[in-house]
Design a protein around this nucleic acid. Sequence first.
DNA 1: TCTGGGGTCCTAGGACCC
DNA 2: TCTGGGGTCCTAGGACCC
Length: 426
Amino acid sequence: MTDVILHIDMNSYFASVEQQDNLAWRGKPLGVCEHLGGIIIAASVEAKQWGIKTGTPVWEAKKLYPKIILTKTHPDRYRLYTGRLMKILRDYTGLVEQYSIDEAFIDATRVCNVKGVNPLEEGAAIGRLIKARMKTEVGDWLRCSIGVAENKLLAKIASDLQKPDGLTVVCKGAPCATQGAPLITVGDLYNRLSLTDIPGIGYRQEKRLKEMGIKTLKDLRDYPRSKLIARFGLMGHHLYEMGQLRSSWKPTVDQEDNIKSLGHMYTLPKEYREAKFFVPVLYKLSEMVARRMRVQQLVGNILHFHIHDSNHECYGKSKKLGYYLRDGREVFYEAVKIFEAANLPAGRQFKLIGVTVAGLMEETGQQSLFERDEKSKRVINALDKINEKYGDSTVCRVPVKQAGNVFRDSIGFGRIKEHIKLASFL
DNA sequence: TCTGGGGTCCTAGGACCC
DNA sequence: TCTGGGGTCCTAGGACCC
């Protein structure tokens, strides 16, 4: 039986959804960004023609195409469309793995090995059906690129070869007929791909490999496995397998309730040296994290705090706690403790802070002892209700620093910018 | 004007136990 | 009093992904 894996990758996803929902924006260069001082998170197909892509600073995008339409992200809408796509995929097999908000793998091995024709060709036929249904059932402006191959690694590489709206089949040996879908053999890939085209090899790994004389994918393919293992340990084994373009990786059926960690980060509008400016932001982030945990009925006992300075140098630290967090205030206190213990060198300017809770598990009655304070529980419930009714972050608690390191809560407006303004008066 | 905001997984090293 | 070796768990941090 030949394994048949499809990788479905939505093209210019956030930008396409924005165009899907706004007829006037269709066919025009558009960029999705968080704020005007930031970067383009997603560029429409039309914007890409002007050289604008993910990561382009907004100011540069404006220089490349002054009339570019800019819009903020709308995660809820993206999730809605993704949900529709996943529903279609599940019509073909139960083995669907949502890999990110705009990508999925499906294992179509079973359905493709029944008719006695080439299984990869069957896979390509399913790919065509998915593409057609996506236009009619998800959104007529949305496009995806699909890769079909015998393993996940190859399928992912294949979907990347033709964009937008591509369908590419990669086969291992002799080319097989696939009714018009471009066909690539594994041998071709060695001539086309660089090391960082392989998922799992990033900038750092590439640098290390180059230091060993491994400059191309062919070099990696031909490098002795034993030497890679001697240098990188288990990772060396994975690298060797990547070099062979093999993967034992199988699509894992999603478990939506299986979130491992949950966090938020925020880039400050400018750089700050003094903690008083970002302490309130940290509090807000902590509340946002805790709120999501409550909505999903999760508690967690690992706290990770990270802060980036103006050179994008990151300082991060995690800590396993002896109890489970659920309340934003607790998250905040633990993060502050980590921050203060860090004793960061004076004179650094900070640009981004983030807080993440991991070690998540389902909430049970027993952990609620951490809401030891009945009053605080009532406050949380009241704030949750207001925010549910009037929108996220309408109100939240604000820490007011008192003598020593004691914080007192007060109720404030939710938006982070308000907090920064507020902070300057603390 | 000069890099967002999410995540996951892997590994090294120390503590501890037998 | 000093010394072996193996295994597991925990923690922190780095690399990578979209």
